[in-house]
């Protein structure tokens, strides 16, 4: 065991050293209740879901241990599932791009052009609604979108449009806007955290040495905030793979995302079939997190509030 320092402070007498198993266990002891929760209420259920995805739901809606791949085969054979899954990925991708397009200039502005106090106030203004009721924030859009929604009404009243615009109907564009609304603060927080650490004099140095602003941006700034950008993408992309509320509240008949299809299985007590679809989503989430494990920092988003 390496005797590393705790946050810059030299390790004291109590830290480090192989002082026997008992002492070590004693120090790990406080983690046990938390580990128990993690194990029994998270890892075990996930493992059971994984196993069930290879079993079968019988006619009494009980999952029985008859191993098969039928639940997964359905995903590839019946077009709806694959189509909806791809649609979900595209939607998540578009929202991620939008969140970056909004978040990056916004974070840049905060760090570069505002004083510490303004920065804090604006950041707080962004963070605060994002910690408040997710359901209520999605619901708030119901009155804004729609044929007779506030957006159409206002635009008609000030004479910008004559007839209600279809684009504001309860449909995919609406789902896109609401998802962007819900998730872009994640991106902002991650980007802000990485931009805040960046030393902007480097940009001036690069330009003094003859780099054009866009070159300085690409070769100096971008590589250094890469982790922040990846964190931002992950924090926007992943939750959308599990989105079912937004399509339900502000989407149309065709706006279902993959999570809505899982929900349909569960409504019919088809747990094995639902488990398989959920495992496909989980596999995607896990793959993303493994690929980018070195680059994303949860703490930046969680504790910067």
């Amino acid at each position: 065991m390496t005797v590393a320092s705790d946050g810059g402070v030299p390790s004291g007498p109590a830290a480090g050293s192989s002082s026997g198993l008992v002492k070590r266990f004693g120090r790990a002891l406080p983690a046990l209740p938390g580990l128990a929760v993690l194990l029994f209420l998270f890892l075990v259920p996930m493992a059971i879901m994984f196993v069930f995805s290879f079993w079968r739901t019988n006619n009494d809606f009980v999952v029985v241990p008859e191993w098969n791949l039928g639940n997964y085969a359905r995903f590839f054979v019946e077009g709806t599932y694959l189509r909806t899954f791809i649609k979900t990925l595209i939607m998540a991708g578009l929202v991620t791009v939008a969140a970056l397009a909004i978040g990056l200039p916004f974070a840049y502005f905060l760090v570069r052009y505002t004083g510490k106090l303004t920065q804090r106030v604006i950041l707080l203004a962004v963070i605060v609604p994002f910690w408040t009721s997710y359901l209520v924030r999605v619901y708030a859009w119901q009155a804004i979108l729609g044929e007779h929604g506030a957006l159409n009404q206002i635009l008609q009243a000030i004479g910008v449009i004559k007839v209600p615009l279809d684009i504001f109907n309860y449909d995919d564009p609406g789902v896109f806007v609401v998802l962007t609304y819900i998730y872009f603060p994640f991106a902002l927080l991650a980007l802000y955290a990485s931009l805040e650490k960046f030393d902007f004099t480097q940009l001036n140095a690069a330009q003094d040495l003859g780099a054009r602003p866009d070159q300085a941006f690409r070769h100096i700034l971008l590589p250094q905030i890469r982790a922040g950008i990846i964190t931002a993408c992950i924090f926007v992309f992943i939750p959308i793979l599990g989105e079912f509320l937004t399509p339900t509240l502000v989407g149309g008949a065709q706006s279902s995302l993959i999570a809505n299809l899982v929900l349909n299985f569960l409504r019919n007590d088809q747990f094995a079939e639902g488990a398989a679809l959920a495992i496909i989503i989980a596999a995607f989430v896990t793959a993303i997190m493994i690929v980018f494990r070195k680059s994303f920092r949860v703490e930046d988003v969680v504790t910067s509030g």
């Binding site: 998270f42 992950i234 992943i238 599990g242 899982v262 989503i281 989430v285 949860v298 969680v302």
Partner: peptide
């Protein structure tokens, strides 16, 4: 558990 969508936690 923070990263995984709550949806998956709930279903699991």
């Amino acid at each position: 558990p923070i990263m995984i969508p709550g949806f998956l936690i709930g279903i699991g």
